[in-house]
């Protein structure tokens, strides 16, 4: 049955890749504005800004959306006009890459450390749970009893 789920998941992923996605929704002003600061108010995100300069920028965005320009083209236009300082995100190059890559490196290091810890602990755990002497072999439980014990344990879990 587990194998079936894996098959289902694989099929589903395949379907997701093949079935053409519904045409993307029209680009919105907010989507573009989120990437920009107001040129007239230093440091103010365009989405939060309500000044006349911001109005001009928003109007330009709407005009370019109506002309069928993509988000990147509109952002590029503003970068050309005002420089990269107009963007609300660091362009992906040079030292800025540190910002983009850093968190994922952190995640990988964290996950690796956690994996090592779990491995060390689990081998320690196994060593401990190994039988020491030649006592009587563990009693085998029948499937039904084992299921019942597991079920009851799972309900007890947090209540202890």
């Amino acid at each position: 049955m587990t194998r079936n789920v894996v098959w289902l998941a694989a099929l589903w992923l395949l379907a997701a890749a093949i079935v053409p996605a519904r045409p993307a929704l029209a680009l919105t002003e907010t989507e573009v504005a989120e990437g920009l600061l107001c040129y007239a108010c230093p440091g103010e995100p365009l989405t939060a800004d309500r000044c006349r300069g911001g109005d001009q920028m928003r109007a330009a965005i709407r005009r370019m959306i109506a002309e069928g320009k993509t988000k990147q083209e509109i952002l590029d236009y503003f970068v050309q006009e005002f420089g990269e300082e107009i963007l609300t995100y660091p362009p992906k190059r040079g030292f800025n890459l540190v910002a983009y890559v850093g968190p994922f490196v952190g995640l990988l290091v964290g996950a690796a450390v956690a994996a090592v810890v779990v491995r060390r602990w689990s081998s320690a755990g196994r060593r401990r749970s190994e039988p020491r002497g030649s006592g009587s072999p563990p009693t085998r439980l029948d499937e039904k009893t084992r299921r019942r014990i597991e079920e009851e344990l799972s309900h007890l879990d947090e209540e202890a």
Partner: peptide, 21 residues
């Protein structure tokens, strides 16, 4: 702050960055 200290460039880190990461 880090970027300004290292490169002297002032960058803004807003929603597009955080959403992506």
């Amino acid at each position: 702050l880090i970027s300004e200290a290292v490169t002297g460039n002032k960058v803004t880190v807003g929603p597009p960055f955080f959403n992506q990461v």
